[in-house]
Nucleic acid binder design. Structure first.
Length: 317
DNA sequence: GCTGCAGCAGGGATTAAGAT
DNA sequence: ATCTTAATCCCTGCTGCAGC
């Protein structure tokens, strides 16, 4: 299989979102957050200049790591020799898994220093700029629509997280229209995000997690594996994938989704810590596990802050 | 082998902004 | 005024990895 997007009629293009977890350290200057420029155009130009400054040396398949990536990288083996794996990256755009890249940090998810931006419009314009940029390997399709245009007889299965789905929505919509058989375009991802994408979507929610295993982090990639492995010869039919997803959701235990524990106030958490820590000094991790096992909830970082707070008060007392 | 913890992305509740 | 959509915040538990 070549990485040009031009392939045999039965090719199955699988596109997965990238992951923040990298196997090699990311240099500071290849963190999107390191850019001083806030204006979108100059910022993008500065970013691609940095990416293009010298020869990248690590293939995308070896760059990413973690649970999500392991599940994603295994998807082609579910489909067989006709599968070609692509990465939807906030730093590089659409790249084949064999493309050489630099270790970088950029994400469409909000709330990190390396976020592309906040608003949907900003994310979409960034994705469009990436599509217009030639990228690290000349001649490759740079967008979903280009992938579909070059290979209209193929199937495309996109496994997308929420933020990436927002960024690529227009591109996905346009790509679906380019395939000769519209049923061969499926987006496995979160439902109810955009009404105009619903007909392309194979909806996956946390309800499926007990069926597919793993953490939320890898939910979509694991669900994609689960669905495609059960689709028989019809591995990329959106209709078929939807049927299986619906059956799986119905078969999932009714309480399969996590039952949130009782949320405690800061003072209640501190009181819990003080009570449990009165004999010996269990660690924050041990105490948080114990708290959750007791049917209560507290977010990890908040718990750590309160733990340190309670412990320092106990020392001073 | 065990422990501690950062990283992660979807879910749900709430709020803000925009459209009708 | 009401409805819809987008954004924001905080939550969860699993995983991987470093350190002991």
């Amino acid at each position: 299989m070549t990485a040009t997007g031009k392939a045999s009629p039965s090719t199955v293009h699988i596109v997965v979102t990238c992951t923040n977890r990298k196997q090699v350290p990311v240099p500071e200057h290849l963190r999107l957050g390191d850019l001083r420029d806030r204006q979108p155009g100059p910022r993008f130009a500065a970013w691609t200049r940095r990416l293009s400054a010298d020869e990248p040396a690590i293939a995308a398949r070896d760059l990413y790591g973690g649970e999500h990536w392991r599940a994603a990288a295994g998807l082609p083996s579910v489909v067989g020799d006709s599968a070609q794996l692509w990465v939807c990256s906030a730093g590089y755009g659409l790249v084949s898994v064999d493309t050489l890249l630099h270790p970088y940090a950029a994400t469409f998810s909000a709330g990190t220093p390396d976020s592309v931006g906040r608003g949907v419009g900003e994310l979409q314009r960034w994705w469009q700029r990436l599509a217009d940029w030639p990228g690290p390997m000349r001649g490759q399709p740079r967008s979903f629509v280009e992938l579909a245009r070059r290979d209209p007889e193929a199937s495309i299965v996109a496994v997308m997280s929420e933020a990436y789905l927002r960024a690529c929505a227009e591109d996905l919509r346009a790509a679906a229209a380019k395939l000769s058989d519209p049923d061969r375009f499926a987006v496995i991802g979160p439902p109810r995000l955009r009404s105009d994408l619903e007909d392309l979507l194979v909806p996956v929610t946390a309800r499926l997690r007990p069926m597919v295993g793993g953490s939320l982090h890898a939910l979509h990639a694991k669900a994609a594996t689960y669905l495609m492995a059960r689709a028989g010869g019809d591995v990329t039919s959106r209709k078929r994938l939807r049927e299986i997803a619906q059956q799986a959701a119905e078969a999932a235990p009714a309480d399969g989704s996590r039952k949130p524990g009782v949320r405690l106030s800061d003072e209640e958490v501190r009181e819990y810590i003080r009570r449990r820590a009165s004999h010996g000094r269990p660690s924050a991790t041990v105490l948080l596990r114990s708290l959750r096992d007791d049917g209560m909830s507290c977010e990890q970082s908040r718990f750590k802050r309160l733990y340190e707070n309670a412990v320092s008060r106990a020392v001073l007392a």
